[in-house]
Amino acid sequence: MTSTDPARRSVLSRRDQLAARRSRVLMYGALALLAALFMAPLAWNVLYALKGRAESASTDFHVLPQHWAWGDFKLSLTMIDFGRYTLNTVILAGTFAILVTASSSIVGFGFARLRGKGRRSLFTLMLATTMVPQILTVIPTYVMFTKFHLLDTYWPWVLWGLAASPFHVFLFRQAFASLPRELEEAALLDGVGYFRIYWQMFMPLVKPVIATSIVLGFTYVWGDFITPAIFLSDDKTTLGVAMSAGYVDGQGINMTNVLAAGTVFYVLPVLVLFFFAQRSFTRGIATTGLKG
């Protein structure tokens, strides 16, 4: 857990202790500076939004707003149809997240608990497909789906969800494989089918993984830019795409500080979701070990 070990520290002389304290202060200083650098883009975005239109466009530099313009946060919700785009995104991200969790847990159960010829090679193949860059398939898929009239619909996300995602499958496989084998053996002797074993016995035992999978699926679609930008029209598109082009006034000038205000509303749900899911998320990563 820790790299400062008491056994070693006890034999240090007072001068060494002073030196250790000095290096500790130095390290805290460096960490604080680094943390400030990492927070700067987020903090500046909020401050910029609070400056109001005139002040944010002024070349007269102040870190803090001279006048706090809270009104532009309200404006950011009305200047584009924020509610509609949020609803679009929630429907799209929610559908994908639930479908990909359902399909991936089924596939994960298969890999963890059932046997068939080629199981190992199939699993290796699945892990290998994660190395195919997504963008390589997205553009040809766009050309194909144009022919099937699937463009500007949410069907592609339904199909992607039903197809299961290797990373989600991997999470579920690892979780299911760690459960004791006696669990399903009694049920099998009683003649219970595998699907009921999966659904009624195994799924309730991996609730943290389900939560992780849903959060990951949801935030993936919520934050995705290029796929909705290519596949969806202005009416049906997601909040991220709508925002990137939407905050323009009557003269075609970008309302950058209103966009900055809208960005706060766009980013906040992701941060909140991850904050709550972080524990089970990191635990999932840690226990799966990522060794295969």
Binding site: S103, L114, R115, R119, L122, M126, T129, A163, A164, Y194
Partner: peptide, 21 residues
């Protein structure tokens, strides 16, 4: 039964990854 359980990925990967490429 194994093939039935992993079929969503097998079919999905074929149609949505292999075919587009």
């Amino acid at each position: 039964k194994f093939y039935a359980f992993v079929s969503p990925w097998v079919i999905g990967c074929t149609l949505l990854t292999a075919v587009p490429i």
